[in-house]
Design a protein around this nucleic acid. Structure first.
Lengths: 141, 141
DNA sequence: GAATTAATTTTGTATGTACAAACAAAATAG
DNA sequence: CTATTTTGTTTGTACATACAAAATTAATTC
């Protein structure tokens, strides 16, 4: 039987890629004790202390409700801190969260090196770019 | 603050793409009453009656445990049928599942048309190909 | 300035997916 | 032929993520 309908479908291939790269990313981030998404979230908060949840959700392209859940977890681990200000919530780094900065940056580099070794530096960076542009076009309204 | 570390990261961009294309795919598959992954699973079973769960998991690039869950759901809806044979499980179409074949194929075409309209036919097919090849290289051992 | 609308966050609930361990059957080795 | 190993499936549990509805606060309109 012919299953080209799978491999020609962007939904299918994109999800497959997401699963395989996520597996690698989780390996490389194991040293941080965080999954990759949470690692990047901490880098954002460390880099922009007082950023709102809304802004974080926009930068990470997740829904606000998802972001609430993320911050819940990181706050429980004392890696970030909430300050309610009217209807918005400002998110601040903690000392513990700042302490992870270097480890996370290193994991992020290792992740890059790790897939670049399999795909080639040029090629993988190009693909990231292409995928980013594609997402932008798909998200248009 | 500079968040290029996000947009340069294949983990991040791939997951973003996965979320945006999944949103579109779910819209286009709404007419089938199934999410896209389940739709494709039914096409596989209809096309290869008696395919084993192991083979299905391989074709869909999901783990066997995930596949068990998928078949549980489709069996509950009487869209496929299990036949245990020794230690393997053969999966067969049902009349109801076969009845969905055309609807699913149409949804699949609509999905393709829908993202091709935003990305261009050529470009989106090329990207699917590139992503498929990338996954293959990342899954190498 | 009270009433309505809009913006931000949270909560309840659901889904897709994975891993590790358990289980069952088959294959292989002694 | 019994004992061990391998293979295929299932189960328990967990996590990332979403949507819809609720809650809260701010902004706007009359």
């Amino acid at each position: 039987m012919n299953d080209s309908f799978l491999h020609n479908c962007l939904f299918f291939t994109a999800n497959r890629l997401s699963r395989s790269i996520t597996r690698i990313a989780e390996e490389q981030f194991a040293s941080t004790g965080l999954s990759p998404m949470y690692g990047y979230l901490i880098l954002l908060v460390n880099g922009i202390p007082g950023i709102t949840q809304k802004e974080l959700a926009e930068k990470l392209y997740v829904t606000p409700s998802t972001l609430t859940r993320f911050i819940d977890k990181l706050e429980a681990k004392q890696l970030v801190e909430r300050k309610v200000q009217g209807k918005t919530v400002l998110v601040y780094p903690t000392v513990k969260g700042q302490g992870l900065e270097d480890t996370i940056r290193q994991a992020s580099r290792n992740l890059h090196d790790s897939y670049a070794a399999l795909l080639g530096e040029e090629e993988s960076d190009q693909l990231s770019q292409d995928i980013k542009k594609t997402s932008e076009r798909l998200e248009k309204k």
